[in-house]
Every structure is written in structure tokens, then in C-alpha cells.
Design a protein around this nucleic acid. Structure first.
Lengths: 204, 204
DNA sequence: CGAGGTTGATAACATCGTTATCACAACGTA
DNA sequence: TACGTTGTGATAACGATGTTATCAACCTCG
């Protein structure tokens, strides 16, 4: 059971999907996770789903439509991972759990994470609706921050601004870790821990 | 005049380039900056340089060879931007200048930055030598940090670990800014300033 | 039962990175 | 000078990609 609150502006295109549509999405997701972004081709998706390529166009309008679904679903699951720990009486501990959930999602879904944050699919740009939905992930974080602020545990500040600060820190460390910069010389989990601790301490 | 120190492990492939080779590289760089990563095609580069496509293969071994040159040159220029301010008697101010130079480079060379940090060119993976060279950018930062540590202005810690911390912070903010997350609601330059200040304060 | 509309499989098209072909120029040697 | 050799580079071809067109089969409904 998760504690993710309902999200606004969930793109309507994600609502109804017939059997073929969901099979295609699952095939695309599996293909992405198993063989990387380069394997995410229209023919490859359709073959893995056991249907013809036309279904990708009739149901999703093309490859970018499939990728947009993966994009939105990725942010939905990211929000879930950040909210998977129930709110406790310690808002600071809740924030830490949020940060750990963020890293857990990124490390456990590397290729999906790169679809969401790198531009690994050529010419794909998320639609305005998808971008707005992705932005609501920030609101989840802002809400937790505001709770800590009203509890007097964090300095009062614009929650959205603060959320951007925290998000950028988490994303920065995870992003460099996934790019394998100096993989042997740097203990990235420790860097992640230090960075998040330093930001939280700076906000108290 | 810049104050960039000499860098180790500069890939040898960058050394000698004839006229056609450098023309190709300039054309590729211009194409990337002007029309984005999707316009970076072998035929497009050759046409812009006024030569045939074969030159890309005879001189660079293919498209990835050209991209690797852009990749390495990007990190060289990033290091230059971080070192463009001469060392003063205030190591903390030097660190701030370093961070401002980082952001200035990223904002001023957005598509190049995404070649360096996002995987916008399909199937391109930097060679081990190029990755090592990219990692030396971290050493430039570590050197400045160590100077501040020995001056007693920063807590003593592993300079490389600390450099990774600072780099990840800068990269995280810049990266989210370039992805235009909540572009209207967030003052990204202010977030960048807060994030770097908070990290520096946490290290003192 | 049959006409109309929809669906989807097949094939074609433009473009991509890459490779093969091959004409032509430059060089060394008799 | 004349000829064989070598290598460079422009052109064309190949496989794969996203996309679109074609068209036969099927379902719906009167």
C-alpha cells in the first residue's frame, strides 16, 4: 500500500487503453528496461507485442506517443516512490525517506529515468500536459517541505523554491552517478547522503 | 587570457587535424548549436563543411568520432569557464566564481552541454579516454577545494568526494533549468545561488 | 443479405549511418 | 616521357528507422 496523494492534471490520454494498447506499452517498457533506448523502435515494440506496426500509429499516433506514456508513467511511479513511506510525526525523517525513495527509483529504473530526464529518444519532447504533470512531482515534495516548515523544523521559505532546491540536489547526484563519472574513485551513495543531509541542515 | 591549468590525459586523437578535419568539426559544432542534436547528421555535417560524407569516415571513423571530439572539446571549455577567474586571496570567492562559470557555460552552450551530460546522440558512448578526460574536470574543482581546506576556510575532507558533491549540485540545478521544469514558477538563477551558497556554507 | 465504414497487415518512401565501388589524380620508376 | 601503383574521395548501394499509402478483410447495421 502506498500513500501517494492523487495528482492533478493527469493526462487524459492515459485514461482508456484497450488490450492491444496496454500490451504495446508493456512491451515498450520491457524493451526499454532490457535493451536500452536504442532498442525502442516501432517495429521492435510491435513485434514484442505480437501485433503489426500500424497499431502504434492508430493508438498512440506514432512512436512519440508511446514514449510520452512511458514518460508520464515514469513520473507517476517516481511520485509513488517518493511517497511510499507513510507520513510520521517526524517531518524531517519523512523528507529523508522521500530522498531515499527518489534514489531507489532512479537506480532501479535507469533507462526509464533517462527517458524522463535525458533526451535519449531523438526528437521526443513531452507535450505541455505531460510537462505539467511532471511538474506536479515537485508539488508532492513542496507539500512535505511545507509540513516541516509549519512544524517549525525548517526555516519558512517559498515551498516551491525550496522543493526545486532539494529536487535539483537529488537529481544532480543521481544523474552523475548514472553517467559513471569516476566510477571507481567516488562513493556515490555517500555523496548522495552528504548532499541531502547538507541541504536539509541548511534549511533548518 | 585564461588561467586554466594544463590537463592530463588529453585524448591524443584531438591533436592533429588537417584543414578538412577542423572545418568538419566547426561545421558540426555550429550545426549542433544552431539546429540541435537532431540536425547533427553525417550528411548534414559534410554538406555544411562543403565536402563529401566520406571525409567524416576517413578522418573520424564515423559520426561517433565527431561527437567524441565535441564531447572532449566541451569538457575542455567547461574547465576553462570554471578557471577563467584568476585565483585570488579569497578561496571562497574563487569557488563562487567557479560555480558562476559553470552555469555560464551550461546556459550559453545548452546543446553542447546536453551532448556532454544527456545522451542525446543515440548509441554514442564516450570512449574510456574521453571519460577519463571528462573526469579531470572534477580534479580542477578538487584542487580549488583543497586550497580552501588548507587555508582553513573549509572543513578538511576528501577533496574528490567534496568536488563530486559540489559538481552534482551545480549540475542538478542547471540540468533541471535546461529541461524547463515549471519554467514560469521557479526562479532558477536564485535556486542556483541558494544551492551553491548552502553547499559552501555546509562545508565551512 | 449486402452496402458502408473501420481496421490492420503489407508495402512503399524518405532519411539515417555505414560500406562498397570505382574513377581519377599523384607519385615513383624505367 | 610513359607506365604501373597507390590512395583519396565522390557516388551509389545497403540495411534500418519513422512514417504514410494501399488495399483486402471484417464488422456493423439497415
Amino acid at each position: 500500500m502506498t500513500f501517494a496523494t492523487s495528482r492533478p492534471h493527469y493526462p487524459a490520454a492515459m485514461a482508456q487503453l484497450d488490450s492491444v494498447g496496454s500490451t504495446l506499452l508493456r512491451a515498450a517498457s520491457d524493451l526499454l528496461a532490457a535493451e536500452g533506448p536504442a532498442a525502442l523502435t516501432v517495429r521492435g515494440i510491435a513485434n514484442a507485442a505480437g501485433v503489426s506496426t500500424m497499431n502504434v500509429y492508430s493508438r498512440f499516433g506514432g512512436k512519440d506517443g508511446v514514449v510520452e506514456h512511458l514518460f508520464v508513467e515514469g513520473f507517476r511511479r517516481l511520485g509513488e516512490a517518493m511517497s511510499s513511506t507513510p507520513p510520521s510525526d517526524d517531518p524531517i525523517a519523512d523528507l529523508r525517506a522521500c530522498g531515499l525513495g527518489y534514489r531507489r527509483f532512479a537506480i532501479g529504473n535507469q533507462t526509464l529515468y533517462s527517458v524522463m530526464f535525458d533526451r535519449v529518444v531523438p526528437d521526443f519532447r513531452p507535450s505541455p500536459e505531460a510537462q505539467v504533470f511532471a511538474g506536479t512531482t515537485l508539488d508532492l515534495l513542496a507539500k512535505r517541505l511545507q509540513r516541516a516548515m509549519t512544524a517549525g523544523l525548517l526555516k519558512s521559505a517559498d515551498p516551491l523554491h525550496t522543493a526545486a532546491l532539494v529536487w535539483a540536489t537529488c537529481h544532480g547526484v543521481v544523474s552523475l552517478e548514472l553517467k559513471q563519472v569516476k566510477p571507481s574513485a567516488i562513493d556515490w551513495p555517500a555523496v548522495y547522503d552528504d548532499a541531502t543531509s547538507m541541504i536539509i541542515k541548511g534549511l533548518t
